[in-house]
């Protein structure tokens, strides 16, 4: 099997999962699709090295996260302020209750990535630190802070789930 065929096989098997992770990060399916395609392109370009990795899926996730963070960095000037979501009136209105995904969107990009990797992808702290190239201590402390913020943002009944 050629390199291209190997890549295509892997990509076809994992594209959907990558797109879901991308959606969790950006909460926009179309952007998630673009991010996934960019990440797969980068993966293709480094396929020789990537295919020797112990965990190819983690390698691909790492590329996806970098693509996402790069994208956010480039667009940071047009970022909307997440502080709006913290308004008490917003939280008190049941029909406007924040969902988990909305609440995740209120976290800074890197913290969001930490939470998604830790609790959605079920990565260990060490692996999250490796993927995001952060010290383990930072991952731990940011995880604590992010969870506290999520508790603040989410409705009472949802809080009970991970209190």
């Amino acid at each position: 099997m050629t390199d291209d065929e190997q890549f295509a096989e892997f990509a076809n098997a994992h594209a959907e999962r990558l797109r879901t992770t991308a959606f969790m990060l950006c909460r926009d399916w179309h952007l998630a699709q673009d991010l996934t395609q960019n990440a797969l392109t980068k993966l293709f370009l480094s396929w020789r090295r990537a295919s020797q990795s112990d965990n190819l899926v983690a390698y691909a996730q790492k590329i996806l996260l970098r693509v996402f963070l790069d994208h956010r960095r480039r667009r940071s000037s047009s970022e909307s302020a997440s502080g709006m979501l913290l308004e008490p009136a917003y939280r008190e209105s049941p029909e406007l209750r924040l969902t988990m995904l909305d609440a995740l969107g209120c976290l800074p990009e890197r913290d969001r990535a930490i939470v998604i990797l830790r609790y959605f992808e079920d990565y260990s702290v060490d692996r999250v630190a490796d993927v995001l190239e952060l010290p383990v201590s930072v991952v731990k402390s940011q995880t604590r802070r992010s969870l506290a913020k999520l508790r603040e943002l989410l409705a009472e009944e949802q809080l009970a789930l991970f209190g």
């Binding site: 797109r19 399916w29 699709q33 797969l40 392109t41 370009l45």
Partner: peptide
């Protein structure tokens, strides 16, 4: 979610062009 579409094919084409 919308259909995934041909992200793999597009990635392959882009990757080959970049190479």
């Amino acid at each position: 979610p919308p259909p995934l579409g041909d992200v793999v094919g597009a990635a392959l084409r882009d990757g080959r062009r970049i190479k």
